[in-house]
Nucleic acid binder design. Structure first.
Lengths: 224, 224, 224, 224
DNA sequence: TATGAATGAGGATTCATTCAT
DNA sequence: TATGAATGAATCCTCATTCAT
């Protein structure tokens, strides 16, 4: 690795490999900004600095490009979360906190945060995208969260709950936070503060998971 | 001839009054089913049993029809909730339960449940619809929920919380339930059961709001 | 005439007779203002204070209404000119002057002045209107003018000219004056002054018609 | 292969340059024949041998195409006239004759002669087209004619006149000749003969401009 | 005679996709 | 690989005309 790479490929060759990613990045930006239907491939091409025809060299059609945008951006995020869970060794409450705050730090200020809204909006038009998203994103996220909660229950940290349904409930406010920023966020006079929203969320979630005895302690701590 | 005919109401005049509602109903169905962009006015007209031109007698254009659909269906729902809160005299926890379950019973099995997704999806394309929805639906719902929580805090039933942010968090799972049914609901192998989802939601929410001492009792009861 | 009319017909009955004229007046205003294609019968009806359906009680369709507007407004103007010529006993030059100035005073400030432009504009779409206008308006006007010029030639007042072609030439500036006000008039910074335009026109026309000897006198007079 | 192929110019690239003109030519024909409103872009496309969509590659919409038709065809005509005036060295009367007859020879048998009527007809619907036409066509034409008349006055060839108004009057018969052919021309039993019309026009105009002494000679000559 | 709700043919415009170069 | 000119299906919207009342 210390060996200087000989002959860095001429610029155009490198670009060639980068093209799909550049296109996906341009498409993500525009899809998030304008929605699927209102985004013209002309504009995507212009944004990516290529011609319209070039789009079709890399993606079969608009729909496939859309899917690639979703796939290419969501999977790394999930992987990141799963890796965190895997490696974590602290309390389950801390794991929840870190997972949630880490996720937001990673994507909250990014265009990626616009994807959930996009996919929700287009789920009806692209059933197989919805299927993919459900299988590869939602299921994995639910699964991960379910495992985390179970970890807390198993360790005696959390009370027993209807885990299968609770994970849906518990993830909802996170999804909505992402959706909010790309729907009604701009209507607000006083903008919702994500950090405080997440504090309230974690407070609620963890409060509701505490065992009775722990609750007392927490309560005491809160009062302090 | 002297006998006053039962006066068969003029067929058309009567229709005129009914038409807007018929059209809105047809439009709601199709918008929810296919999304705004994919819904053709031809189809809306056919569904409403009128001609394309008739649509334009009652609605200026597709966008205005869309707004009428949202307005006409969401406002009554809100009003219903506010009336309930107004008249309610039991415990705050029961009020929350009744509000949540009542809302779902009223709209859950209806096409109205598809509106939140629709509005979210189109918020970017119709900023003034988003503004309207934010002001007349979201704000009112937040306000109502905030009042309910405050009612519980004031009565000593609930603990003190960051109410302004908590209401956002607390409403999120309800919105997501409605959205879910019109996005990924059909991808599931085992369908999400709204009743159990709401149970888990109410359990979580109310658990997290209980005062420490109440918590113990609840916990005991749950175990029972 | 001094006998008070017995029983003035009830107002609605009188209106009934007046309807066609009211409609024609409303249509004239709108046709002149917006052109044929851009005038909606809805608006004509509203302007005339009747319902759209009523239009069809008096006029077969839009085209026939248009023709009625043209007929009803142009023929009286022509008649007026012909009557003047018939009755006139002064010099031919004075007859020309009076005819021209009288015509403008009669119609120049009226919506009627907008008809020539309208008919020209729609001549291609309504060949039989064009035919009618050509036969009943243009031909009669040309004829009248031709007679007036011939009157001057016959009386030794005007020189001999190619009368058949000259009348076309001679009428053109009058038609254009009317057209101008409804086409480019509003583009002008300094509005064309019809009175001075007509002065220049009459000066040109009569100058060109003078016999050589008369010319000298005229010239002398002008110099004076 | 070493022999440089005669380089068959890329079929499309060449077309791209030609297309706008081809489209304008097709549009001119149809606009003149049917009027603006009655001309369908479908037909323009068909006439130009392209598809409907192609029109929109070169012109933003129907209105812009219309303007391009007017601009593209009228400006060269004007330029031609101005060049003639610039270079002319004979008598002013001859300049007038040449200008008028040259203009008609250049455009009289062309579709271009239909433009004045078109612009007049649509001036109300397209105020900025009217403004353009007024500024770039009418004003320039008036200016040119005014200069020509002034040239004659300055050289002592023409008598003094109210030049500002006379130019309007003097141009009117020329405009009407062009308009006539595209409005009532086809209604005539005996077609108006442009050459004789122009003779009558020039006779009238130049007669009216002659100085008294010249008049006598002219008159003598005419009688001859 | 008068109404005005309803109709539906007709045309401008958009944009994903193709394909000759 | 890359281009971008060309395509044409698809859809919104208008408005003259009809007709039941």
């Amino acid at each position: 690795m210390n060996v200087p790479e000989p002959k860095p490929l001429p610029r155009w060759a490198r670009r060639k490999d980068a093209r799909p990613e550049e296109i996906i990045a341009a498409a993500l930006e525009l899809f998030v900004e304008r929605g699927y239907a209102s985004t013209r491939l002309d504009d995507v091409a212009a944004h990516a600095g290529v011609s319209k025809g070039t789009l079709y060299l890399y993606f079969e059609n608009k729909e496939e490009l859309f899917k690639a945008v979703v796939r290419g951006n969501m999977l790394p995020v999930l992987q990141h979360g799963e890796d965190l869970v895997q490696a974590f060794s602290g309390s389950s409450a801390d794991l929840v906190r870190q997972l949630v705050r880490g996720w937001w730090e990673l994507t909250g200020s990014t265009r990626i945060a616009g994807i959930p809204k996009l996919v929700i909006a287009e789920s009806g038009n692209f059933p197989d995208l919805a299927k993919f998203y459900y299988d590869e994103v939602i299921q994995r996220a639910l699964s991960m969260f379910r495992d985390v909660l179970q970890r807390g229950v198993d360790s005696g940290e959390f009370r027993e709950v209807d885990n299968d349904h609770l994970v849906h409930v518990a993830l909802a406010p996170l999804v909505m936070l992402a959706v909010w920023g790309h729907s009604f966020g701009c209507c607000e006079r006083e903008k919702l503060q994500p950090a405080r929203y997440l504090d309230a969320y974690l407070d609620m979630l963890l409060h509701s998971l505490q065992l009775a005895q722990a609750q007392e302690k927490m309560h005491a701590r809160t009062k302090k």
